[in-house]
Design a protein around this nucleic acid. Structure first.
Lengths: 89, 89
DNA sequence: ATCGTATTTCGTAAAAATACGATAATGATC
DNA sequence: GATCATTATCGTATTTTTACGAAATACGAT
């Protein structure tokens, strides 16, 4: 993809404080289940699920099914790509 | 402001390919008048003006009145703040 | 097979973003 | 003062985002 579009898509995914908080938390704890994120944020569980979906679509996080729950983790390679695109601005 | 909010606001401002292109261009040419940006992008003049407004509100660019036209330039300090906030993720 | 927990998806409403053309505002020039 | 060039703002339509509760799905345990 065109670098402007890639950067815009990544930035758009982080263009909401809740999603920034989610990513930051996942980077701190390395990995955690969805429910933990729901507890941290003052948002309904379905809303958090949507934010997770957007982050996942942007490639910034991944979710692995782990029994009855889903374990999320940050995709550090994708984050590195964002860092690179921003830093070369 | 809360760092999550600051980062989200900055990212939101870059969450559109046209705005990324505008910022990138301003960084390349250092400074240029609004009309030049309008010529580069495949968008109506009023639309470009709105994008410029958003970038200005986010603090990423500044506009100085220069006779009948307006000269825009990137705010490198603000950009540095974005780079810092992203890099420390 | 049923139940309980965890998560997503659906339906929906309200707000914001995007884009355009038309109009207004500003400043230089005649 | 009229006019031209440049840019912002207004009005509007369409799309997207954000948020919620309710319903569906998936899985483990009983």
């Amino acid at each position: 993809m065109n670098p402007d579009r890639t950067l815009a898509a990544l930035c758009k995914a982080l263009g909401n404080p809740a999603r920034v908080a989610i990513l930051r938390h996942l980077l701190q704890v390395d990995r955690c289940i969805c429910g933990e994120i729901v507890n941290i944020l003052p948002l309904a569980q379905s809303t958090v699920s949507q934010h997770l979906k957007q982050l996942k679509e942007a490639g910034l996080i991944r979710g692995e099914i782990e029994g009855p729950r889903i374990c999320y983790c940050a995709d550090k390679e994708r984050l590195a790509e964002l860092k690179h695109l921003i830093s070369e601005l």
